[in-house]
Design a binder for these strands. Sequence first.
DNA 1: CATGCGTCCGGTAACGCTAACATACGAACT
DNA 2: AGTTCGTATGTTAGCGTTACCGGACGCATG
Lengths: 342, 342
Amino acid sequence: MVDVSVAKSRRLPVMGDVARLAGVSHMTVSRVLNEPESVRPETRERVLLAIKQLGYRRNSAARSLVTRRSQTLGVVCFDTTLYGPASMLNGIVQATEEAGYAVSVASLRRPTAAAATQAVQRLVHQSVEGLVLIAPQAAEAMAFVRALPTDIPVIAVENALPSVTSVSVDQVLGARMVTEYLLSLGHETVHHVRGPSDWSEANGRVDGWVAALEESGRMVPRELVGDWSAKSGYLAGQKLARDRRATAVFAANDSMALGVLRALLDAGVRVPEDVSVVGFDDIPEGAFVTPPLTTVSQPFREVGRRSIEFLLGEVEGGEAGGVSSVIPPELVIRNSTSSRRP
Amino acid sequence: MVDVSVAKSRRLPVMGDVARLAGVSHMTVSRVLNEPESVRPETRERVLLAIKQLGYRRNSAARSLVTRRSQTLGVVCFDTTLYGPASMLNGIVQATEEAGYAVSVASLRRPTAAAATQAVQRLVHQSVEGLVLIAPQAAEAMAFVRALPTDIPVIAVENALPSVTSVSVDQVLGARMVTEYLLSLGHETVHHVRGPSDWSEANGRVDGWVAALEESGRMVPRELVGDWSAKSGYLAGQKLARDRRATAVFAANDSMALGVLRALLDAGVRVPEDVSVVGFDDIPEGAFVTPPLTTVSQPFREVGRRSIEFLLGEVEGGEAGGVSSVIPPELVIRNSTSSRRP
DNA sequence: CATGCGTCCGGTAACGCTAACATACGAACT
DNA sequence: AGTTCGTATGTTAGCGTTACCGGACGCATG
């Protein structure tokens, strides 16, 4: 007689146990799991029932050992408490799950080459099938490229690396839209508080701002440099408050814009009556500060979706990448901006 | 003669290849990797050299198949664009990496029982060795408990589940500190804009607030309900602005506090001169809004560190959990609060 | 009635690694 | 000198799954 008892043994059930209970071979169990249509409905039901009875679950290690696939993607990210990166990570994770892959995350404590290399190595060791880099710093980008394994597909988000497929929001366009909008309100020129020069997003926003000003033949003021933090924005705002000719300020992200706002208000400058201020990112709080912040909204979810689509294309199709995809952002006009009064 | 050539074959090198090149058996290679001190230094060097030459990497699937360990922890989280959860996730990921484990993330799109169950299943399928639940909603908590596999250790962050080890910030204490501080400034009582009732953090903050008021024998005003968003804070703020007796407001997070702030200012109420406002979380922007926000700072990194410590204790030691650890937060006083003027 | 073919299922051999036991060898003991 | 022991390495047998091939059976065809 076949032993059908749900053994008290601590051992987890394996395919063989299911097979015995269902009165088939373990191969049939495997087939039920992998290509159900290839087994007779009646048999299939018996197997499915046995699986349920035993609480059987396929051993993923054994499976990936023989298939040579881990069904896992790796994500490398830096500071995920910033709104932008957090949203991006979220978008990536959700898109990956939808595609039926697991996602393994490696977080960099500090943006150094050593940390980046180590993170990539760690993920490769976990035999991820593809790598997503949420790496906005150009310096890091270089480090990544050096550490990159040539044999697994990589996609860069928000940072175009040489010869790496990338998906990003059009920072240049976003900055143009802001600048052109401010000019259209009658401002002579637009001042800019930029992000750190090793972040490609910061550079893209500078480029768009400069381009828009030059195309309109405006003076390009000296840019102020921040580090994305509200504090650095505050410092920049203090300088701007002293400059009577600064009537429009474009800060490279919302946090800095809030800092600028506060510095101006502290200095007795009214926003938007005296000076218009625009941010970038569209953080949720932006609509509820005083005054509500005009900003640029980025389609993070779409970026995540498209990244994973491309990456899995390479993983599954084997086609080499190199394509870059750029998604347009959207200008969100609120009350921190107004027409220049003569 | 032994074949030592770095074969052109697409096949990745395996232990046997390294062994052949180093002139040892594959077991010696395994030992060099797992217990280096047990092999003679001279032999070890030869093996290490061969590994480097071939670019060999151990196959993690094969390894975990035989060791029955995946060296992976699973994290279930909900909305990681909120500052609190994002910080928590970050703390968890970093602590996990430091412990030499990989971290697999499952994100819930919506906080439903079905989504929660599915996420846990997915992670269990990936054979994670332990589970971290960043699940602040009580409703979800219940769903989790039902879906929980009994055979792998689980730790809950920021939410005490029955019979599950948990680590959290002392929300009750934080709320007490805020309330007592406001009372000490001379306010008759403190109004509260609470978070959603299915979030345990929201309830903890309500409890602390009520306790502090009752101990001082103060009237407990009817609480207003928000959903963590600045918008809901704004709505609450509009109501509070109409209530002349409301001189101190404690919002359950910073985003709502910003909303309250803005509603009050829009209604011509001065902060902090007429009304004091306090938030919770200490978002980075809090120091740079107008006026800078008094709030409560939570030690997210410490929570992450301690969670992983506990979880790995269970994973590796096999000891059952059930212990709960509570970490005190810190009151950060800025300028959105001032003494009640008679 | 033999043959061919399609459908369904089983047997066996990997996949790359580690656990457990086996062996060789020199040093240290009686 | 023979025995014992410890150290360094090798041999073998799985871990649980899927790939691959082959066999049994039913049905249609010559």
